[in-house]
Design a protein around this nucleic acid. Structure first.
Length: 391
RNA sequence: GGCGGCAUAGCCAAGUGGCUAAGGCGACGGUCUGCAAAACCGUUAUUCCCGGGUUCAAAUCCCGGUGCCGCCUCCA
């Protein structure tokens, strides 16, 4: 299999060929303090298909997806519910992992936790302080945005625009320790009751962004091919990662950025604060995992979409159709794929166009030729991750 | 204000210069059934937000306009 893949790159706003035979993929994972909703499932299923497709094409992919297990959200939730933060994180992560397993998403090679990489985090922070890009104040360390003119190049927001905006909205930082409202924290001093680790600046804990720089470079090297996540992470998270990493190594951090669109419910972005979430575990109790995957994959990974309950009906029907038509088709027939899989694979190779691929799949399944159905079965299992055996 | 995206039937949506504008949901008609549901068959856009332009030919390309949406230190 040739394995051409043209993937949209947020850094260039264009589809670009991903050509590496061996590559690293880092996807920003969850902060484990609440239940997995459909938006998480959409993002991680998209990257799951990306990984499956690349491997199907004979590429070697090292897939890393982190767990940000120390963070304001976790501590806040732990405090308000009276649960130990570590226990909360473990429990919520276990639920997330179970949802992913039921969805038939492959586990990443590495699922690093922020708390397991404090030495790496400190090393980067120290180096940034040493090189003058970060400064310490009262036990906190900040990245100084002004010292890095390229800051914000992924989101294409100019420094001035960001600053104007911040001032306009009276959104100036509550943090008097910052030299600039846009500076972001690398290390924060311990507050009462919070977990902490020793550092050159005293007891404290990592800031938000830094853990992803530390973990991605630890497992994939200073420069790697692909970095992904939801498009709500472009700014500030991914821009901050670039700033930290490139100033630490002096090398380009990531070649290709891939971002998934947001899932809405009732015309609003699905979010914890609005309470309009559709939970993966609840959906999986109602419909087969294959149906939920088909529902998710019927939307292109980059476009935002609104969840409509009636989509469940269509997804279930397609699932039934595929199962009936492909029940006894041999999924290991390579020649059938060669002969009949071209249109499907072409759609997948074109910026992971799963809606189009699904159309091709349906056509193959409905076709009268047995080899076509074998190709459909093989591609559905191996590229789309459908599991015809699950209930 | 900056950046990005989208406008195609009741709804979701494919389409990236040329056969009769995919498909799905819904609706309606039919077959089946004691009735209903399910399943299956059929019908459902002379037209692609508006105005210009390019072309033998545009939903598709160009210019202008209008409308909607997302992000902008909680966020997949």
């Amino acid at each position: 299999m040739n394995g051409e893949l043209r993937l949209y790159n947020t850094a260039s706003l264009q589809k670009e060929t991903v050509g590496e035979r061996e590559l690293g993929l880092y996807v920003c994972g969850v902060t484990p303090y609440d239940t997995t909703h459909l938006g998480h499932a959409f993002t991680y299923t998209a990257f799951d298909v990306l990984v499956r497709y690349l491997r199907f094409c004979g590429r070697r992919v090292t897939y890393v997806r982190n767990i940000t297990d120390i963070d304001d959200d976790v501590l806040l939730r732990a405090h308000s519910t009276g649960v130990d933060w570590k226990e909360l994180g473990d429990r919520e992560y276990a639920k997330f992992a179970e949802d992913m397993r039921r969805l038939n998403n492959l586990p990443p090679e590495v699922e690093p936790r922020a708390t397991g990489h404090i030495p790496e985090i400190l090393r980067i922070t120290e180096e940034l302080v040493r090189s003058g890009l970060a400064y310490e104040k009262d036990g906190c360390v900040y990245f100084e945005v002004k010292k890095y003119p390229q800051f914000g190049r992924l989101c294409r927001l100019s420094y001035v625009a960001q600053l104007d905006l911040a001032n306009e909205r009276g959104n100036f930082p509550a943090d008097p320790l910052k030299r600039d409202p846009l500076d972001f924290v690398l290390w924060q001093a311990k507050k009462d009751g919070e977990p902490s680790w020793p550092s050159p600046w005293g007891e404290g804990r990592p800031g938000w962004h830094i853990e992803c720089s530390a973990m991605s470079m630890r497992y994939l090297g200073d420069s790697f091919a692909l970095h992904g996540g939801g498009d709500d992470l472009i700014f500030p998270h991914h821009d901050a990662e670039i700033a930290q990493s490139e100033n630490f190594t002096g090398k380009p951090f990531v070649r290709h950025w891939a971002h998934t669109g947001m899932v809405f419910c009732g015309r609003h972005k699905m979010s914890k604060s609005l309470g309009n979430m559709v939970f993966v575990s609840e959906l999986l109790d109602k419909i087969p995992a294959d149906a939920l995957r088909l529902l998710l994959l019927s939307h292109h990974y980059r476009s935002a979409w609104n969840f409509e309950p009636r989509e469940l009906i269509a997804a279930r029907r397609l699932t039934r159709l595929l199962r009936e038509r492909l029940a006894d088709a041999d999924p290991e027939d390579e020649s059938a794929i060669e002969e009949h899989g071209a249109a499907f694979l072409e759609a997948t190779a074109d910026d992971l166009d799963t809606p189009r691929a699904l159309l091709e799949l349906r056509e193959m399944a409905e076709g009268g030729v047995a080899a076509e159905r074998r190709a459909a079965r093989a591609l559905a299992e191996r590229v789309l991750g459908l599991n015809f055996d699950l209930k």
